[in-house]
Design a binder for these strands. Sequence first.
DNA 1: CTATAAATGTCGGAG
DNA 2: CTCCGACGTTTATAG
Lengths: 210, 210
Amino acid sequence: MDYIGRLTAHLPTAVRLVMVKADGSVSIHADDRAYKPLNWMSPPCRVEESPGVWRVVNKVGEELRITLDEVIHDSSHDLGVDPGLRKDGVEAHLQELLAADPTVLGEAFTLVRREYPTAIGPVDLLCRDANGRSVAIEVKRRGEIDGVEQLTRYLELLGRDPLLAPVKGVFAAQEIKPQARVLAEDRGIRCVVLDYNTLRGVVKDELTLF
Amino acid sequence: MDYIGRLTAHLPTAVRLVMVKADGSVSIHADDRAYKPLNWMSPPCRVEESPGVWRVVNKVGEELRITLDEVIHDSSHDLGVDPGLRKDGVEAHLQELLAADPTVLGEAFTLVRREYPTAIGPVDLLCRDANGRSVAIEVKRRGEIDGVEQLTRYLELLGRDPLLAPVKGVFAAQEIKPQARVLAEDRGIRCVVLDYNTLRGVVKDELTLF
DNA sequence: CTATAAATGTCGGAG
DNA sequence: CTCCGACGTTTATAG
């Protein structure tokens, strides 16, 4: 197998699994590496078959050349359309739960707006604390340095608005990496670790109470 | 199929491909989505088989529950050990090429060190310009905001070293996103777009000359 | 379509 | 093992 595209790669002869999907994608698997193939071509692409050689090419000129020495097993099946996958528990949901009750962040916050717009993008949550001061909250599933930098940029921008300034920052995530915590705290940003299940329970209980 | 782990997901009954690899990983594919499965469990994990139900669990308690209504096709093959994949053209190689001749960045730079160590990690390249001033160079394949933030942190740290200060910054990548460029230039960091093939040719020619 | 942020990211390397 | 950055990231979403 040879790939010539964004990089150049070569794969020696061996027994492998080749998967061709209805969307046109081709992937070549070894018996390890979880679900990731050794090499692949994403759709849209086209397969040119000649005896013992497959050339898989896409629009931008990337190419996968597969040489077939021996076919050990060949099987084809029609899977039909897929009913689709339902997911739950991602950042959007965390944000929803915090918006429903910002006090779970440990202070008497009241929500001003979710997705509060700024010139460089929306802040997850904008709140006011007990003293009426602005608080910008960045929500992440996993809190890493990127998220702290993102919140820092928002805080800088929001701090220029005389109607909001001064603006405090809160970095809330299910998990906060040590480096991110150090950076955040160095910048005066408070870190809050969220437990999704507890949070869901607490907010649900509260909504049930009223 | 149901997944209970970092998130919760449910997949209705349909015809699908289930792939079980020697490393223990399990993945469930629809006939689209390139090579990414609808659901999966990465190794290390364990499969408990009972009639019509597979429970795939890992150490941290994540679980994949697969209900089998009908087996349309079942096939198992020993692929043996994999000879492995050779790659070329990634960031490491760009860094090598720039280290071999930093002047391709457009100034009379001389290399001080590759992977110059700092408290928060190594700088890709540290050079001196024609006037002996320090230049920190961050190399990326794709230049995005993250990379600018990373270089900014390095510049701040290196700038505290009286033997190096003041330190200029250069952000070099095969492609620089508009936001990243704006942020970099706002911080006085020069941006250089690299062409990998040209660069390879130029550096090779120069090495051949001497 | 481009640009940006999220991802059960995955993967590899260093400590 | 954890942390950290690259990735042919891929994927979804907003503009």
